[in-house]
Structure formats: C-alpha cells, structure tokens
C-alpha cells in the first residue's frame, strides 16, 4: 500500500483532563498524517493512546488542534473496542446491525450487510447466538464485524488483541491483516493503538511511538517489510529490537 494520498491529517492536538484540584496533560501537541496505510500507535499503558483514538473517532473533543479528513465526504469510522462491548440481550446479528440502524439503513438492508460482515470474520453460522454463548475470540470477531458492517473508510483498533489468549490473538492478527490486504472492505486506512511492540511490527506499515504521559511523538518507524511476516524473520527481530530501544 502506498501512503501517497493523505487520508487524514492531525495537527497540534492537545488534551487535558481535569481531576479534582489540578489538570493533567494527556496529549501534548500531536501532529501526523495518515495515508492509505496501516498505522500502529505504540505507547506505554495509560499514556493517552486511547484518548487519541477517541478524538479521531469524534467521541472526545481536543482542547486544541485540528483533525481533517480528506475523503471528500463525511468519514465512516469503524471502531474495534478493547473489550468486545456487545449487548448481551441481542444476538450476534442484532449487535452487528446496530451501527447500520443508527445510520438510518432500513432493517432488511442492514441485516444483509451485517451478514456479509459476519461471513468475513468467519461467523456466518453464528448469527443467532447470544454473546454469552461465544468464546472470547468469537466475541472479538463480532466486535470486528460490527466495525466492518458500515463499510468504514477508516478502521480504528483499540488494543483489540490484548484481552485474548496468545493463540487466538495470533490468528485474529493475521486475519485482520488479510482483510486489509485483500481489499474486500473498501478501507482507506487502519489506525491501531497497542502497547505490544511485536504486534506493531508484524502488522503495520508505520509505527508512531508515543512517550509516557503526557504523550508526545518520540519517533516514527517505517516498516518496509514484505507480508506475510513472521516473528522468526531476522528483519522482524531487528526491527523489534530497534523499536524497543525507542520505547525504553
């Protein structure tokens, strides 16, 4: 994927939180461009990565700075939450349809699109199941299908594999990369927040490394490696070591 065309431009983003008695600066003057690429935002826990993601999603407002989407229309944003965040009283299909209904898509059409998204993540057979009947990995797949159902321009991933067992996480990682590479979904960009260095190197085209709170951009690392990548490849090992040196 080339990063020639800028999809999203972030300039001078800052954010403070008020806690009783004082203000805490979480994001300190963050600027970067996102092209048609898979970006990983890497930083220690609690540094403000998730806040950054929420600001991009439009759920939180920055204190200063601008976010500009260069897509030509109101961006459709898919969001994969850290925990599956499924409504326990709705079936897998119902949960996946929800964002479509919210956009005013009629029920029949929404059902079709949700089914397509569920097929993409391999859950076509499970649409009538309730969340508590699924394993952790399957729930996270529904979370992903829900984000894909609205055919997003930009996909935001908030540490999506951190609550899964290592084997399931590994499988899901390569599936997400495949979804991105094969272009079955008209995605322009993926932004993933993570604290896992290896994950960032294995999946992304570019890593943006943030400092501990308040978060500033420490370094950007371009990952020019061919896919599929494996953790055993010496180039991968070298990059992981390099990135670690910036983190610590």
């Amino acid at each position: 994927m080339s990063s020639s065309e800028v999809v999203l431009s972030i300039r001078g983003l800052s954010k403070k939180y008020k806690v009783p008695g004082r203000e805490v600066l979480v994001l300190d003057n963050i600027s970067f461009d996102v092209g048609e690429e898979f970006i990983a935002i890497l930083g220690p826990s609690g540094c403000g990565k998730s806040t950054l993601l929420r600001i991009i999603a439009g759920v939180e407002k920055p204190d200063s700075g601008v976010i500009e989407f260069r897509i030509g229309h109101e961006p459709r944003i898919g969001f994969v939450f850290q925990s599956p965040t499924l409504l326990p009283w709705m079936t897998v299909l119902g949960n996946t349809m929800l964002p479509l209904l919210a956009r005013g898509v009629d029920a029949g059409e929404a059902r079709e699109r949700a089914r397509r998204a569920l097929t993409l993540v391999g859950l076509g057979e499970f649409e009538d199941f309730y969340p508590n009947e699924l394993s952790g990995g399957m729930k996270q797949r529904v979370n992903i299908a829900r984000a894909l159902a609205i055919e997003p321009d930009i996909l935001l991933l908030d540490e999506p594999f951190s609550n899964l067992d290592p084997l399931t996480a590994e499988t899901l990682r390569s599936e997400v990369v495949d979804l991105w590479l094969t272009g079955v979904v008209p995605l322009k960009a993926v932004i993933m927040v993570t604290h896992n260095v290896e994950e960032a190197v294995l999946m992304s085209d570019r890593i943006i490394i943030l400092s501990p709170r308040p978060a500033k951009i420490v370094k950007e690392v371009r990952i020019g490696l061919k896919r599929p990548r494996s953790r055993k490849m010496p180039e991968v090992q070298a990059l992981v070591d390099e990135v670690y040196s910036y983190v610590s």
Binding site: G58, V59, F79, T85, L87, W89, M90, L98, P99, A102
Partner: peptide
C-alpha cells in the same frame, strides 16, 4: 452499565430512540 457500552453508542452515534430500545430498556 459498562462505560464501554456508552463509548460504543457514542462512536456509532446511536440516535436516542435506538439507544432507548437497544441499550437502556433491555438493560
């Protein structure tokens, strides 16, 4: 309610009637 559910409802901009029907009443 789990706060992440609110985040989800905000991210996907669920309009109030849908929030009522899909989240608050069942909860």
């Amino acid at each position: 309610l789990d706060p992440s559910i609110d985040l989800m409802a905000n991210v996907y901009k669920l309009p109030f009637p849908l929030r009522l029907a899909a989240v608050y009443v069942p909860a």
